[in-house]
Amino acid sequence: MAIQDHSEPIGTVILHHVTNSDVLWPLSLFGFDISITKHVIMLWIAGAVVLTAFLLGSRRYRRERDPLPTGFSNMLEMVVEFVHKSIVTPNVGAAHAARWSPLMLTFFTLIFTANILGMIPIFDLIPGGGGGTATGNVNVTAALAIITFLAIIVAGTLEHGFIGHWRNLVPPGIPWPVLFILIPIEILGMFVRPFALTMRLAANMTAGHIAMLAILAPIFLLGSPWVGLGSVPLNVGIFFLEIIVALVQAYVFTLLSAVFIGAAIHPEH
């Protein structure tokens, strides 16, 4: 966050913090703009953290047949077990859990890591714009939700065949005139679900940051450090709340993805 220029309106400062930076390194691929911005960098850092943590923590699982969990690997195992046993298995079913757990684990770990990294101000030191919460950007959450959208279709198609999956959109035994209302609703629902995923995660991650900055703003607006006596403790409280939100939103995104995939596999429920 660059607040060097104090004459800048507070609204601009806040927006600067929660929105993506300008292009740091212009790139293009087949005519598409794939320039590197601060949210791309934050995303890479999140990916690198997740990769490093899980590759280091799972070394013994690749070497030994029945490794006993110790220390760090115990913690990672807890995450894997939580997603596999508490999110995927109840929604997708035990028979399909092993297939979908890796996808759900990637959602959970990547989103949670990106959420938490956005709360660590050290990344502001990155030259050219600094840190930020990648998952607070709708483009990131939309890209993730599109993966869920595709996964739902893949899951339904693998289980019921291509035609079977689309037929499952409408429950059987419905009188035909109802179909005229139901089919548009179901098609709309198909897009509303990932859209809701997109907006929920992005809005939640952005809102916390806006709230914290808005609470800090009076210190600068009134130009008195005494305002900090109120703003800072309040922000500490919100910071703890944000840690919970970061965890809950990663959980909610993963859980809803699992629920949608489960619904495509078991349409009768």
């Binding site: 598409f32 703009d33 791309v40 699982y61 990672l76 996808l103 993966i147």
Partner: peptide
Amino acid sequence: GLIFWTWTTFLIVLVILATKAW
């Protein structure tokens, strides 16, 4: 660009960790 990089990052993490860790 961000959408592209999100997919790229996601896929790299997914493919590597699915085979090596998860």
